[in-house]
Structures are given as structure tokens and as C-alpha cells.
Design a protein around this nucleic acid. Structure first.
Lengths: 135, 135
DNA sequence: CGGTATCCTTTAGGATACTG
DNA sequence: CAGTATCCTAAAGGATACCG
């Protein structure tokens, strides 16, 4: 899921149902590349489309564009087009987007600690879990 | 998306690729009802399956069970079965799961603030955005 | 360069009926 | 009571080709 949540939240907003604050926040990240995009824009400043593509070589044109458009809709990033030849497009994080950075940092921290733990229980355990999943 | 991320992270763990700490954390929440489940278990203590169902009336049996199983796999909650008649099953958050609560709290806080802002820009704006999306 | 357009696959999520 | 089992659909994500 992920964008199930996003659409759900949007629907609730439209119908005047202003509950589910956590879900609203979660829906900001939900999308395969959104966290990473926000992270880099928050950390390094401005990126051009092509630069983001290099950063995320596994993201297809379509999906990357889609994620950027949604982040823009959510007012977390801005898109600036310079009508030069060839065209240039800059993506930058907004003030609102920056307010998400502390959360992303916490997530990074938690994930890092958890990865350390998972290494200690030895890779074999992880494999066993994976096998268990296949049943 | 959402569990795209979860499976992605699991794959990376298996192949020894221990990057993507943020994604690991995100994958803990990704799933339509996971945050809410963690939130309630973290706040109120133990819940039985039926109680969770009442709390989440829109979740189907299948999906709710699935989310609980994944949370258990990720070691965020425990499942305890009491072989009484009729059977009883308790769900409880683990110590690891509790370490996610600060993040969830932050998400709740961010979402609440954002909802306030969105109310102030007036519902009409939101409708315009929604219309824009339909193109 | 920064995308669209098109087509395709996968899978998350859901409705309903049934069971130990 | 606490789930499985089955079937279904919507939509997220991806590959590739083309465009202003």
C-alpha cells in the first residue's frame, strides 16, 4: 500500500473528515522514492531532474516524475522550469517540506540501530525468516 | 505502494545490502492499518483480535490478520493464543515496537499541525486541488 | 534535457463464505 | 472467537519508445 493511504486521506479531507493525523503524515512519504528524494533535497539543496535520476538509477522516468509531482502537490517541494535550450528544471524543498526532516532523521536513526541488531542475530536467522515467509 | 518498500528492504537484507535505513523504518508502518494498530497497542496495552476489529471496522478479516502477522514477523508485536473455548488471542506491543512510538508521536504532531493549516486555507482550495488531479 | 505516452505485471487491499 | 480460503479489482510500479 502507501498511496492507498494518500488517496484515503485526500478523500477524507474533501469530505470534511479531519481525523487521522498520523495517516496524513505517513501519506507524505508513501511512494517508493519519496523519502529519499526529500532526504536529499533537504540535505543537499537544489537538484535537477537528471541529477535525481542518477541518484535513483532504479526509478523509471514515469515513476520518478509521478513522485515529484505528488510531492509538489503536497507542497513539500517546488519545481522551477527555466525555459533555456535545452530546458532546465530545478527541484527544491519547501519550508513545509523541511518540517518533515526531523521525522526522517528519526527514521534514519531507528533504521540504523535496527540494522545493527539484525546483523548481530546473524544472517542465518534472516534466511530462516525468509523461508518461513514462503510457506 | 508501501509494501513494495517492505519487500524491497527484505530482499536487500537477504542479499547483504544493509543500506536504506530510512526505508527499513518506513516499511515497519507501511500497510494500511499498521500505524493505527501500533498506536493503540502502544497507548492502551493489550488488545484482542475482536477488539481491534471494532477499533478498525473498515478493515476486513483478511487484511487485518495480514497486518498483524507482518507486525509480528517484524517483531513489533506479540501474539498470544489461549486455548480456551472459545479461543482467545492477545496482541501486545514489544519493547522494539515501543521504540517506534516516538516517531509515531512526531507524525501525529506534524499531521495535526498540517491539518490546522489546511483548514485555514479554506476547503475551496482543497477542492480545486482535487479537480486539478482529475485531469 | 526533462519529461509523456503506452502497455504490461504485480500486489495490496477488499467482500464474502466457511471453519476449528 | 479468531481467524482461513477464495475470488476479485484497482492501482502502484516498471519497461520502452517517443517528443518539444
Amino acid at each position: 500500500m502507501t498511496d492507498v493511504v494518500r488517496k484515503d486521506v485526500q478523500k477524507k479531507l474533501l469530505s470534511g473528515d479531519y481525523g487521522c493525523a498520523k495517516e496524513l503524515t505517513l501519506s507524505m512519504f508513501s511512494g517508493k522514492w519519496k523519502i529519499v528524494i526529500l532526504y536529499h533535497l533537504g540535505k543537499d539543496g537544489i537538484y535537477r531532474f537528471g541529477e535525481l535520476k542518477k541518484l535513483l538509477p532504479h526509478a523509471s522516468n514515469k515513476v520518478l516524475t509521478q513522485q515529484l509531482r505528488e510531492l509538489e502537490e503536497d507542497e513539500l517541494i517546488t519545481r522551477t522550469l527555466y525555459p533555456e535550450v535545452p530546458v532546465r528544471v530545478d527541484y527544491e524543498i519547501t519550508a513545509l517540506g523541511q518540517t518533515l526532516l526531523p521525522i526522517i532523521d528519526l527514521m534514519f536513526e531507528w533504521g540504523t540501530n535496527r540494522l545493527k541488531q539484525l546483523k548481530h542475530v546473524a544472517p542465518r536467522n534472516i534466511n530462516e525468516e525468509a523461508i518461513k515467509k514462503k510457506r
